[in-house]
Simulated assay, not measured.
Amino acid sequence: MRRLKCPGCGKLHLELPDFMAPKKHYEARLIEDVMAGRSDSCPADDSTIRRWKKEKYPPSLP
Rank of each mutant, 00 (worst) to 15 (best):
M35S: 15
G8A: 12
E32L: 15
R29F: 03
H13V: 11
M1V: 05
R2E: 09
C42P: 01
K53D: 06
R50Y: 12
C42M: 02
S47M: 08
L12W: 15
K53T: 04
A36S: 04
M1G: 02
R2W: 09
D18P: 05
S39Y: 02
L14F: 07
C6N: 01
K56F: 12
R2P: 03
K23Q: 13
R2N: 07
I49D: 04
Y57T: 08
D45P: 14
K53Q: 09
K53L: 07
L12Y: 15
D46Q: 15
L16H: 07
K54N: 07
F19R: 02
K23M: 10
K11L: 11
S47L: 11
H13A: 12
Y26I: 15
I49S: 02
E15C: 09
L4D: 11
R51F: 12
Y26D: 13
P43C: 10
I31A: 04
A21V: 12
H25R: 02
P43N: 07
S39E: 02
I31T: 08
T48H: 11
R38I: 06
K56V: 15
M35K: 07
R3G: 11
K54R: 10
L16W: 04
P7W: 05
E55H: 09
H25G: 09
L16A: 09
G37D: 01
C42I: 08
G8H: 08
K56N: 14
F19A: 04
D33C: 05
H13N: 03
S41P: 01
E55Y: 02
R38W: 00
H25C: 11
R51V: 05
K53G: 04
M20W: 01
A44S: 09
M20N: 01
G10I: 04
K54I: 06
D33M: 10
L4I: 15
H25K: 10
H25V: 12
K24P: 00
Y57D: 04
A36Q: 12
V34T: 02
P17C: 08
R3F: 13
F19D: 06
S47G: 01
A44K: 00
P17S: 05
Y57A: 06
P17V: 12
Y26L: 15
P7Y: 06
D46I: 14
G10A: 03
H13C: 12
H13W: 12
R29Y: 03
P22H: 10
E27F: 12
K23S: 12
C6E: 01
K23T: 11
E27G: 14
L16T: 03
E55K: 02
Y26K: 08
Y57L: 13
P7F: 14
R29Q: 13
R38Q: 08
L4E: 07
C9K: 00
K24D: 09
G37A: 01
V34R: 05
R29N: 09
D46W: 05
D33P: 08
D46P: 15
R50W: 04
M1T: 05
Y57I: 14
D33E: 14
E27V: 13
E55M: 08
D46R: 10
A36P: 00
R50M: 10
R2C: 07
L30R: 03
D40T: 07
D45W: 00
K56G: 14
K23Y: 15
P17I: 09
K5W: 03
T48Q: 14
